[in-house]
Design a protein around this nucleic acid. Structure first.
Lengths: 232, 232
DNA sequence: CCGTCAGATTGACTTTTATCAATCGATTTG
DNA sequence: CAAATCGATTGATAAAAGTCAATCTGACGG
């Protein structure tokens, strides 16, 4: 693996505190590969042979049942995915596919588990990462169970806006069809939901969103740190 | 804390492999309390001062937003709850209330974090527990996003039946209103959903469920290990 | 034993969401 | 450039789920 990439991975919370020797050992066993867009990297149900680290590009985590499918999350660089399955040595619960050309490091799950046993700083980092992931999913579940699709969209826009620095005009970082799937609705419904937010000052032009009246939208959306998580 | 209870707690995966000395130290700092039914033990948003261990009774984890609320999970003995918040030293994302008279051990979060640093077997157990919790929530989310309420109910019944040993007649272990909330629907809708399963051989009498035609129900429900989790 | 009460059920109705089909628009491709 | 294509949008309709109000039922206390 090229040195600069290794250094970037080292900076991740998951790896930043572990012993040099252990990190080097992990990286020695790692493969790095470039994938084109729309490649299925992982299929749910398969054994979890590798911890994946997305170095560049983006990856969709999705799941299927009975002919339907839904997007569970999008992974953006630099971060790992499928840590829980790796650690538990259990089958993947989600499939993963590249959304664009992506560069991905693959660390054999066995190595991760071995170093986890040997390096208590790494073990602690894994705990923190898993706790974080768990809390994220709990928030997503609250979002799904407590809000209508219009409310989910409104809050999504506010989160996205915050992520963009709080400006009034920003870009969606999803294709709309995937956004619909992430929010748990159909693309048709998403179109209508955008219209439903017009009275609160939201205008849409392609992927460009304008929030014309911040207070109005927030009054409708009622964002909450325990769901939308400005903190932890 | 009485000795037999301490022994039962010791048997939990979370504590079974740790050093005696550390376990004793954790238990020394623990409080054990009896609570009546319908007591709110934890309110979401509050700092997480204690890891909770349910010794007997049952506890509902729920969450509220904008005047609505939803039941996220039910905790049954013997198990811990709110581990992630304790570890992260972050606010609770869910509230908890006793469903019946319950006996609960409270371990100061600080102690848990200290022993976590000192005992690598404990750290490993925490990782496993968190990974397990994470995967459970992912499954719940797939259930919510990929299935209609009728399908969720059908699969819930099959899970419950398996839990009861696979017999044709078994009892719901929830009040129906809470079951409705767990499944993400209204009590009225749950009533109708039970009727909707009659064509597949399901009959209901109070909390007593009879599955008259196993094959029919399974054909409709299409249970899947990656959602309904007979394995891990 | 009767009245009370809470949860469950039912019916009527509304709202929300999905589905299907058609169209639009932008981009790609031969 | 023109045709093809894919995603987004729109309209019409259907299905799913929620709401509100009334009734039923069974457990409990007086």
């Amino acid at each position: 693996m090229p040195d600069p990439e290794s250094r970037d991975i080292r900076k991740l919370d998951l790896f930043s505190q572990m012993a040099d020797e252990h990190f080097t050992s992990l990286m020695r066993g790692a493969y790095v590969q470039n994938f084109p867009a729309q490649v299925e990297l992982i299929t749910e149900g398969e054994p979890s042979d590798f911890l994946h680290i997305l170095i560049s590009g983006s990856v969709d985590l999705f799941s299927s049942w009975n002919g339907r499918d839904t997007s569970m999350a999008t992974v953006r660089p630099i971060s790992t995915f499928i840590l829980a399955a790796t650690i538990k040595d259990a089958p993947y619960l989600m499939s993963a596919r590249t959304l664009e050309k992506s560069r991905i490091a693959l660390i054999p799950s066995q190595d991760v588990r071995a170093i986890f046993d040997a390096d208590s700083n790494f073990a602690r980092a894994i705990v923190m990462e898993l706790a974080q992931c768990y809390r994220s999913v709990i928030k997503a579940q609250k979002d799904l169970k407590l809000r209508t699709s219009l409310e989910r969209l409104a809050n999504y826009l506010l989160r996205q806006q915050r992520h963009a620095g709080g400006v009034a005009v920003f870009e969606l970082d999803f294709e709309k069809r995937r956004l619909a799937s992430v929010l748990g609705m159909t693309p048709e419904n998403l179109s209508r939901a955008f219209k439903g937010l017009q009275p609160y000052g939201v205008t849409v032009n392609g992927t460009r969103i304008t929030i014309g009246n911040q207070a109005d939208l927030e009054h409708f959306a009622k964002p909450n740190p325990l769901i939308d998580g400005f903190t932890s």
